[in-house]
Computed example of a mutant assay.
Amino acid sequence: MVRLPLTPGEVERGQRLGALLRRARGERSMLETALDARVSPETLRKIETGRVATPAFPTIAAIADVLGLSLDAVWAEINPPEPHAGPAPTRERIAS
């Protein structure tokens, strides 16, 4: 299988994810965290350093659970809102 190169946005998102997980892990050892999440310490290390910018969802879910992070918090941290001109368009109901 050929992997396409990561976009700059994917690389940045991976770096934000890694930083979030490192902060959440705090003083807890990488080995303990990885084993509790049932992932290899090498996988956790690669995610935390941004070398795996697009880890599998079950992997992130397991690590987040062990660290007490909600998936909503993870999503909000790694996908900051993009600046835009104004509020999202809304549908107006047309009276008949």
Score class of each variant (00 low, 15 high):
62 A>C: 05
66 V>P: 06
74 V>R: 01
4 L>H: 08
73 A>V: 03
70 S>Q: 02
43 T>H: 06
77 E>K: 02
6 L>P: 07
21 L>N: 06
67 L>K: 10
25 R>N: 06
44 L>K: 03
46 K>S: 07
46 K>T: 04
6 L>S: 14
37 A>M: 09
67 L>S: 12
40 S>K: 00
54 T>L: 08
91 R>H: 11
3 R>P: 05
20 L>A: 10
76 A>S: 11
59 T>Q: 01
90 T>P: 03
73 A>F: 05
85 A>N: 13
79 N>G: 02
11 V>H: 07
92 E>Y: 13
23 R>F: 10
77 E>L: 00
70 S>P: 01
58 P>W: 03
56 A>K: 14
10 E>I: 04
94 I>S: 13
81 P>A: 05
96 S>M: 15
85 A>C: 14
18 G>H: 00
56 A>W: 09
51 R>L: 13
11 V>P: 04
80 P>S: 09
56 A>G: 11
54 T>Y: 04
4 L>K: 12
75 W>F: 14
21 L>Y: 06
35 L>C: 11
81 P>G: 03
8 P>D: 13
56 A>Y: 08
65 D>P: 06
2 V>F: 14
1 M>N: 13
88 A>L: 13
9 G>P: 08
36 D>S: 13
8 P>G: 10
16 R>S: 08
67 L>C: 09
32 E>N: 05
75 W>Y: 13
87 P>W: 12
48 E>M: 05
55 P>I: 01
65 D>L: 15
32 E>D: 11
45 R>Q: 13
55 P>W: 01
36 D>I: 01
54 T>E: 10
58 P>A: 02
53 A>L: 04
87 P>N: 12
30 M>D: 04
77 E>C: 07
15 Q>L: 15
4 L>G: 05
70 S>G: 06
81 P>H: 00
40 S>V: 03
58 P>L: 03
9 G>E: 15
88 A>Y: 05
70 S>T: 10
43 T>G: 03
69 L>H: 07
5 P>R: 06
16 R>C: 11
42 E>R: 14
27 E>R: 14
70 S>V: 02
91 R>K: 11
62 A>Q: 09
62 A>R: 11
12 E>D: 15
92 E>G: 14
45 R>V: 08
37 A>W: 09
35 L>R: 15
54 T>R: 11
